[in-house]
C-alpha cells in the first residue's frame, strides 16, 4: 500500500465515523473497500505491463 492510499483510507474512515446516518456510514466504508481494490488492481496491472514489456528476446 502506498503512502497516499494509506492516507486516503484514513480520511475515508474519519469521514465515515462522522456520519450519523447508518446507511451513509455504510457508503463511505464500502467506498474504502473499492479504493483498496483499485490499489490492488493497479499494482497487478502495472506489474503485468512491466512483465510483458521486459522482453530480453527483443533486445
Amino acid at each position: 500500500m502506498t503512502e497516499q492510499s494509506a492516507w486516503l483510507r484514513q480520511q475515508i474512515d474519519q469521514l465515515a465515523n462522522q456520519q450519523s446516518k447508518f446507511t451513509d456510514r455504510a457508503f463511505w466504508l464500502a467506498l474504502k473497500q473499492v479504493v483498496a481494490e483499485q490499489d490492488r488492481r493497479s499494482e497487478q496491472l502495472g506489474g503485468e505491463v512491466d512483465g510483458r514489456t521486459w522482453r530480453p528476446d527483443r533486445w
Binding site: Q4, L8, Q11, I12, Q14, L15, L31, V34, V35, Q38, D39, R41, S42, L45, G46, E48, V49, R52
Partner: peptide, 24 residues
C-alpha cells in the same frame, strides 16, 4: 473538502486503471 478530495482521488484511480487496461 475531505469529501471532494476523496471523490477526486477515486476518479483519478479509476482513470489510471482504465489507462493501464488500455496499455495492456
Amino acid at each position: 473538502t475531505t469529501g471532494k478530495l476523496i471523490a477526486s482521488i477515486f476518479d483519478q484511480n479509476r482513470a489510471h486503471l482504465d489507462q493501464l487496461t488500455d496499455t495492456l
